[in-house]
Simulated assay, not measured.
Amino acid sequence: MARAFKDSRSAHQKIAAKLRRQITRGDLPPGAQLPSTPVLMEQYGVAGTTVQKALQMLKEEQLLVGQPGKGVFVQGGTQQSISPEVYMPPAGAGQPYRWISEADKRSQRGSVTLLNVAVVTPPYEVRQALALDDDGQAVLREQILFLNDEPTELARSYYPLGLAEGTAMMERRKIKGGTPALLAEKGFPPRAFVDEVSSEIPTEDEVVALELPKDMPVMLTFRVVYSDDERPIEVSLLAKAAHKYRMRYRLNVS
């Protein structure tokens, strides 16, 4: 028998959660008009101020928009699926970074802003994945990935110092085709990757970079990329707004 448990969230948070799920899963499509405040008051058995608080939460998340004299409408849409495997093959000679070329296929505009390049002692789990000692160092490349000028992903990628030294990975500038293309040129093409995906409370830098509304979690991917002989060549921490995106994996079962 299930244990008794009560949702301790406020009434407006519960209402916002129900409406958010209807929006992100397509039951309330873009352009749909929400019922009036009196109707929502009756539906949920709450006061008008509670309904307004719930709607305001979703407006701050850019899922709803109010039109004076007309009502409240769905502005956001269903969550966009992102398939990690399409970004893994190195870009061809002279081709743009795959984030940009794949966005173009979806009639979106992809762009990247490079925030930082530094030699650092990585966090514990990154050191473990790269088989580094406690004081081992790696090259960190930190960037924000955009779709249609909206921040989509904060990517913090770490590379073994031995692979990065003497290459453009050490420089604070974008790399034509991205780091996968550069590593492939050096003889370390990506062969496999392992993702661990979790939902977490965002850090301050994630809130700022992704322009997150209050109390919105992030979807955090811990990714290890391997080359030949299972050699780890990249470890990334990838943070996305949890209410806008979902990960899509296709695995063949033999």
Rank of each mutant, 00 (worst) to 15 (best):
S198M: 10
N148Q: 03
L212Q: 08
K214Q: 15
P190S: 05
K176F: 00
V218R: 13
P189F: 08
S199M: 14
G178S: 05
E185F: 01
K174R: 13
E185P: 00
L210H: 12
F193D: 02
E165F: 10
S199Q: 14
E150K: 15
R191M: 14
R191T: 10
Y159R: 09
K174V: 05
G177V: 05
V197M: 04
T203Y: 09
L154V: 04
L147Q: 06
E196G: 02
R173T: 04
E196Q: 12
V194T: 11
G166P: 08
D215P: 01
R172P: 00
V207P: 00
L183I: 03
L183D: 01
A168M: 08
G178Q: 06
E150R: 15
T179I: 14
Y158G: 00
A164I: 02
P160F: 12
V207K: 14
L163N: 03
Y158K: 05
L182F: 05
L154S: 05
E171W: 01
G178P: 01
K186L: 15
L154Y: 04
N148I: 08
N148T: 04
S157P: 00
I201H: 11
E153H: 00
P190A: 03
S157Q: 10
T203C: 06
V207C: 06
S157E: 10
L161S: 07
L147H: 11
R191V: 06
G178A: 02
P151W: 07
R156H: 00
Y158M: 02
V194N: 07
E171Q: 14
E171Y: 01
S198E: 14
M216H: 09
L182I: 06
M170T: 12
V218E: 08
K174G: 12
V218K: 10
L210N: 06
R172G: 02
I201M: 13
F188H: 13
L147N: 05
V218C: 10
P213L: 09
T179C: 01
P202R: 11
V194R: 11
K174F: 00
E165P: 02
P202F: 06
K176Y: 01
E185T: 05
M216W: 07
S157H: 05
V197Q: 03
E206T: 04
D205R: 12
L161G: 08
P151I: 09
A168Q: 13
L210F: 10
V197P: 02
G166C: 06
L183P: 00
V218Q: 11
D215K: 13
F188Y: 15
Y158R: 04
